[in-house]
Every structure is written in structure tokens, then in C-alpha cells.
């Protein structure tokens, strides 16, 4: 089938074809088989979908519309603020769980539990202000928690932002069967202002001298509290 160049009447050149050229098939041609039917349908469906998507998500092709959902629905379409209990859980696991454990049970004799602790959910003389103060400046010396005495030191966490402290407290007050109301960032800011620039950790004796205070009910300005936690099984 293959011709050598010497037999080829069109050849006036001395270049000899090499082996790969000699074994080549003739130049390719095309058949005209019809389009597969399913591909026509697929193309039609895709074009329909593409036009539909483009019409619905282009903000009227205006150059200043970057997010049609925001443009159409205004503030209502914005994602709500993150659930403080979800943020709080992450911050708790990062910062607090080393001592208090992810179970909130602490370590017997060393780190006090948070589950059903009067310091967390409120007790005879312990109020919300005491809880926030401990988180801001830390605590040290002997403390009674659920009838047991702990003698250890907790570092201050004033470097966290008000919202972060509020999220952590909201989380520990609603997890593991605890059911105290959430703490707002505004309340943390107020307690932070009241405490001035106190740096040294609190002792139980000092805290007992401060009258207990309960966070004022969430006012109109406060962000909506998350839905109350479903009755969690006892930890």
C-alpha cells in the first residue's frame, strides 16, 4: 500500500521517506454520522438551565450589584449572627477544656466542675457578675464548689473580646444540663468597666464581699437570645 518515494511520479526530491512515514495510514477523513440523540437533549437541557440561572442570579446585569440576594432582600437576607453557643463551644474547646475538660466535669481535686456548679448557674451568694469577673481576672486560693474545696489558680482571660467571653459563658451555662440564661456581650462590657483595671486573680473571700448581681433581662438593644436549649440529658 505504501509507495516508496522513487516510484512516486510527484517526487522530484531526493529526500527519502523514513520508516515511520512509510508505515503511515493515509491522511484522516471525517464521516458524517448524525449527532447522538441524547447529546442533543443534554445540550438543550444545559442551555435551558444556564439561561435560567443567568436570569435569576445576575442582579439585572447592573455593574454595582455584587450579591443579588442582598440587593433583593435587604438586611433580612443577610446571614444572621452566628449562634453564640456554637462559637462558645469552639472557644471553650480551645481555651478552657484543658482544665475543665470537654465534659465540663473538671478533674477531681484539681480543677472544679462546671456542670451544675453554683459558680456557673448561680447560687446562694454567687451572681452573674462574679462569673464574669472570674473570667476577666482569673481566680486563686481555696474555693468551695458543690461542697468540695479546690485550691488552685485560674489564669485571667481579659485578652478575649466581650463577645467571645459572652459566647463561652452562654455555652457553659446551657450545656451538660445547665440551663441558666445566656450572658450578653453588653453585660460583659459593663462588668469589665466596673472592675476597672484589676489584674490580680480574685479570691473567694474578695468575691463574697461583692453583692451578687443578675444580668438585666435582655433589652431591646441586645441581640436576640438563641432558642432555649432543648432539655439536654444529664451529663
Amino acid at each position: 500500500m505504501n509507495q516508496t518515494p522513487n516510484n512516486d511520479p510527484g517526487s522530484h526530491d531526493s529526500i527519502e521517506a523514513n520508516a515511520p512515514e512509510l508505515r503511515e495510514a493515509p491522511e484522516p477523513v471525517e464521516k458524517s454520522s448524525p449527532l447522538p440523540f441524547w447529546l442533543v437533549i443534554l445540550a438543550g437541557v444545559l442551555i435551558f438551565w444556564g439561561g435560567f440561572h443567568l436570569a435569576g442570579n445576575s442582579g439585572g446585569f447592573k455593574p454595582d450589584v455584587y450579591n443579588p440576594e442582598l440587593a433583593a432582600g435587604g438586611a433580612a437576607a443577610q446571614a444572621g449572627p452566628p449562634d453564640p453557643r456554637v462559637v462558645g463551644k469552639r472557644l471553650f474547646n480551645q481555651n478552657c477544656a484543658v482544665c475543665h475538660q470537654t465534659s465540663g466535669m473538671g478533674v477531681a481535686g484539681q480543677f472544679p466542675p462546671l456542670v451544675a456548679s453554683e459558680w456557673v448557674v448561680g447560687g446562694d451568694w454567687v451572681g452573674d457578675n462574679h462569673l464574669v469577673k472570674i473570667l476577666l481576672a482569673g481566680a486563686q486560693g481555696p474555693m468551695q464548689v458543690k461542697g468540695n474545696t479546690y485550691n488552685n489558680a485560674m489564669p485571667p482571660w481579659a485578652q478575649l473580646k466581650d463577645e467571645q467571653i459572652a459566647s463561652i459563658l452562654t455555652y457553659i451555662r446551657s450545656e451538660w444540663g445547665n440551663a441558666a440564661p445566656p450572658i450578653t456581650a453588653e453585660y460583659v462590657a459593663k462588668v469589665r468597666a466596673d472592675s476597672g483595671d484589676r489584674k490580680e486573680p480574685w479570691t473567694q473571700k474578695e468575691l463574697k464581699a461583692i453583692p451578687a448581681e443578675t444580668q438585666p433581662a435582655a433589652g431591646a438593644a441586645a441581640p436576640p437570645a438563641p432558642a432555649p436549649a432543648p432539655a439536654a440529658p444529664a451529663a
Binding site: P5, D8, E16, P26
Partner: peptide
Amino acid sequence: ANTLSTADRA
């Protein structure tokens, strides 16, 4: 296709 001869290819 206008078939190319082997010599043309070469």
C-alpha cells in the same frame, strides 16, 4: 482528503 503521497510527507 487530498491524499498526501509518502514523498510529500517526507
